[in-house]
Write a protein that binds this DNA or RNA. Structure first.
Length: 573
RNA sequence: GGCCCAAUGGUGUAAUUGGCAACACGAUAGAUUCUGGUUCUAUUAUUCCAGGUUCGAGUCCUGGUUGGGCUACCA
């Protein structure tokens, strides 16, 4: 490096600003915009209200809302509520909350059920133009006629009914003349198509089931393929972004729009999110909740948005994560470390630091003046000077973490050992001269002397020591419950069924440990939902179970632990 | 035995659309540090295989391999 290049003439920098990194969806959007296929960008997030949102949905939400924002377009929230047997208003509310919590707001709120009448009219249009027919085959027969992946299907015997007859039958289906399953309305496409979705797909089924919004107004309900694309079209969506499993549905999506002669959005598919050490399917999440393996949808071990929130994940960290993982069509599995890293990064910037002793052992300062209490000034957040400082009471009787003391230890052990010294954070350097044990040999009390010249920040002493540990003054300490969460599963891919086993076989028996911690006074005032860092330990969030002056803390994620890693690798003992 | 889609370091995503393979995370080594945190530095690749087109291929073509999806009146 001989000369510092002028940044304005740095070719590398120019290149960087000129070539913005686009994912494959953005590339497609820019091409379509340039070609004039669409006027602008209109997207939508289309959940079915039959469950809680999880981190995989967050990826889709960030994508759809993010694209709208990036291109100055709009993003709607639309509930795909076409199956009344599974859907409930409870889920509608939770989904709205989760999206807002994540930091997004929709331009328009819609329900597929609002389009039922329009959908019906369009179905009539397809019947009249000879593109749809009423079929009397039952489920079992329909399946048989469809053929298989290697064999073509056969035409339904009802395929050639006249438009008049079809119309009459369809009207009577709507009027409730037939029982559940007696008839369906099917699109007339091609029973020999290699794409199974095109083998005369069912558009409507008869279900005498009240709907969460339309109640008993309808007894015929549209299928996904018939409702989804048409809803997109009605809302003038330009890019209908969905997951990979709908790739084979795209020809049908386009067929409906084109046959109807209506606005045809472009469907683009991306790979859904998979993450190590967890499960993402609604079925499995439901099973974990219903069978009591976790405490509920908001159990902090679940990848649900309500679970992550309770665990202490911030919206910012989840958005950063979604941004970080990118979008592609490759079926990948993201290392959960990425998620943990995202929340560490954010919390490192914003979480106030506090001292908490999770596994307390008593430490007495034998040369401390009887009854004396000193207030120590502690920095609230070294990453944020504006967070200021606080006063922490210090006395001759303290608690430190059992992990931070050993009678004998290797040179690389920087914490307190018998005959050694350590710095008490924001206080004094202490020397350990003795240990008291119970009959079983457990350390019950550590005896030390403090070095009065080493008061934090005083500059009175040149004395240094390698280690610094956290502490809490016994008489001022609060007692709180701490819930130490770990991964729910012990294997990277619990989903990949081990031959005969179930994903439940891989549940981590230690995914939740509780501890009674001794904490500094400031921690007693933390309100539910607030994030803090317990110095040297991890990030914690006060749980909704917290009571005034009696918070319960959930461990969001531990701090990076170089020492623990060295131990795990056998480099030290 | 059909159709559709994908494949780039340990993980995930880029590559100005045919022009010197980049970024993040992880891992490793070191520096700094009153958090074994943070921060900083360094190291970490014959682009799944085989042919072909081309001055030039991660990118285009052909064949193969591997993985995913499709056979609900679910979405």
């Amino acid at each position: 490096m001989s000369t510092a290049p002028d940044p304005s003439h740095d070719p590398a920098a120019e290149k960087e600003s000129a070539t913005e990194k686009l994912n494959f969806i953005e590339t497609a959007i820019q091409q379509d915009l340039k070609a004039g296929r669409f006027d602008g960008v209109a997207t939508r997030f289309p959940p079915e209200p039959n469950g809680y949102l999880h981190i995989g949905h967050a990826k889709s939400i960030c994508l759809n809302f993010g694209l709208a924002k990036k291109y100055g377009g709009t993003c709607n929230l639309r509930f795909d509520d076409t199956n009344p047997s599974k859907e409930e208003t409870e889920y509608v509310d939770s989904i709205k909350n989760d999206i807002r919590w994540l930091g997004f707001d929709w331009d328009n709120l819609h329900f597929a059920s609002d389009y039922f009448e329009q959908l019906y009219q369009w179905a009539v249009q397809l019947i009249q133009s000879g593109h749809a027919y009423v079929c009397d085959l039952n489920g079992e027969e329909t399946r048989r006629y469809r053929g298989s992946v290697t064999e073509p299907g056969q035409n339904s015997p009802y395929r050639d009914r006249t438009p008049e007859e079809n119309l009459d039958l369809f009207q009577r289906m709507r009027a409730g003349e037939f029982p559940d399953g007696a008839k369906t309305l099917r699109a007339k496409i091609d029973m020999a198509s290699p794409n199974l979705n095109l083998r005369d797909p069912v558009m409507y089924r008869i279900m005498h089931t009240p709907h969460h919004r339309t109640d008993n107004q309808w007894c015929i309900y549209p299928m996904y393929d018939w409702a989804h694309g048409q809803s997109d079209s009605l809302e003038n969506i330009s890019f209908s972004i969905c997951t990979l499993e709908f790739e084979n549905h795209r020809p049908l999506y386009n067929w409906f729009c084109q046959t109807l002669g209506i606005h045809n959005p472009r469907q683009i598919e991306f790979a859904r999110l998979n993450m190590t050490y967890t499960v993402m399917s609604k079925r499995k999440l439901l099973q974990l909740v219903q069978e009591g393996y976790v405490s509920g949808w908001d159990d902090p071990r679940l990848p649900t948005l309500v679970g992550l929130r309770r665990r202490g994940y911030t919206p910012e960290s989840i958005r950063a994560f979604c941004d970080d993982i990118g979008v592609a069509k490759f079926n990948s599995t993201i290392d959960v470390i990425k998620l943990e890293n995202a929340v560490r990064t954010h919390l490192n910037e914003v979480a106030p630091r506090r001292m908490a002793v999770l596994d307390p052992v008593k430490l007495t300062l034998t040369n401390w003046p009887e009854g004396r209490v000193e207030m120590m000034e502690a920095v609230n957040n070294p990453e944020d000077p504006a967070a200021g400082t606080r006063q922490v009471p210090f006395s001759g009787t303290l608690y430190i973490d059992r992990e931070d003391f050993r009678e004998e230890a290797p040179r690389k052990y920087f914490r307190l050992k018998k005959g050694g010294a350590v710095r008490l954070r924001y206080a004094y350097i202490i020397d350990c001269h003795d240990v008291i044990k119970d009959d079983e040999g457990n350390v019950t009390e550590i005896l030390c002397t403090y070095d009065a010249d080493t008061h934090s920040g005083s500059g009175n002493s040149q004395r240094k020591c390698k280690g610094t540990i956290h502490w809490v003054s016994a008489e001022h300490a609060g007692d709180v419950e701490v819930r130490l969460y770990d991964r729910l599963f012990t294997v990277e891919k619990p989903d990949v069924a081990s031959q005969e086993g179930s994903f439940l076989d891989h549940l981590n028996p230690e995914s939740l440990r509780t501890a009674q911690a001794k904490v500094e006074p400031a921690l007693l005032e933390v309100a539910a939902g607030e994030n803090v860092q317990f110095e040297r330990t991890g990030y914690f969030c006060a749980d909704p179970d917290s009571q005034p002056s009696a918070p319960v803390f959930n461990r969001t994620v531990a701090l990076r632990d170089t020492w623990g890693k060295m131990q795990a690798k056998g480099k030290v003992h």
